[in-house]
Deep mutational scan, measured.
Amino acid sequence: ENVVSAPMPGKVLRVLVRVGDRVRVGQGLLVLEAMKMENEIPSPRDGVVKRILVKEGEIVDTGQPKIELG
Rank of each mutant, 00 (worst) to 15 (best):
Glu1Asn: 14
Asn2Gln: 11
Val3Met: 14
Val3Phe: 15
Val3Cys: 13
Val4Tyr: 04
Val4Pro: 04
Ser5Thr: 13
Ser5Gly: 08
Ser5Leu: 13
Ser5Val: 14
Pro7Met: 12
Pro9Leu: 08
Lys11Thr: 09
Lys11Arg: 12
Lys11Gln: 06
Lys11Ile: 11
Val12Ala: 00
Arg14Trp: 05
Leu16Cys: 10
Val17Gly: 00
Val17Tyr: 00
Arg18Ala: 11
Val19Ser: 04
Val19Cys: 08
Val19Tyr: 03
Val19Glu: 09
Val19Lys: 06
Val19Ile: 10
Val19Asp: 02
Gly20Val: 02
Asp21Gln: 14
Asp21Lys: 03
Asp21Phe: 09
Arg22His: 13
Val23Leu: 03
Val23Arg: 02
Arg24Asn: 09
Arg24Asp: 06
Arg24Met: 11
Val25Gly: 07
Val25Pro: 07
Val25His: 10
Val25Asp: 04
Gln27Ile: 06
Gln27Leu: 06
Gln27Gly: 03
Leu29Ala: 01
Leu29Val: 07
Leu30Cys: 06
Leu30Thr: 03
Glu33Ala: 10
Met35Tyr: 13
Met35Arg: 11
Met35Val: 07
Lys36Asp: 15
Met37Thr: 11
Glu38Ala: 11
Glu38Ser: 09
Glu38Val: 11
Glu38Phe: 10
Asn39Met: 15
Glu40Ala: 08
Glu40Val: 15
Ile41His: 01
Ile41Thr: 03
Ile41Gln: 01
Pro42Leu: 14
Pro42Asp: 05
Pro42Arg: 14
Ser43Trp: 02
Ser43Phe: 02
Ser43Gly: 02
Ser43Ile: 03
Pro44Tyr: 04
Pro44Met: 06
Arg45Met: 14
Arg45Leu: 12
Arg45Tyr: 14
Asp46Pro: 07
Gly47Ile: 03
Gly47Lys: 01
Val48Thr: 10
Val48Lys: 05
Val49Met: 00
Val49Gln: 01
Arg51Phe: 07
Arg51Tyr: 08
Ile52Cys: 04
Ile52His: 01
Leu53Tyr: 13
Leu53Arg: 04
Leu53Lys: 03
Leu53Phe: 14
Lys55Leu: 10
Lys55Trp: 10
Lys55Cys: 10
Glu56Ala: 12
Glu56Phe: 06
Glu56Tyr: 06
Glu58Ala: 08
Glu58Gln: 13
Glu58Cys: 07
Ile59Glu: 11
Ile59Ser: 10
Ile59Trp: 15
Val60His: 02
Val60Trp: 05
Val60Tyr: 05
Asp61His: 14
Asp61Gly: 12
Asp61Met: 14
Gly63Arg: 07
Gly63Leu: 07
Gln64Thr: 11
Pro65Phe: 08
Pro65Ser: 08
Ile67Val: 10
Leu69Pro: 01
Gly70Asn: 12
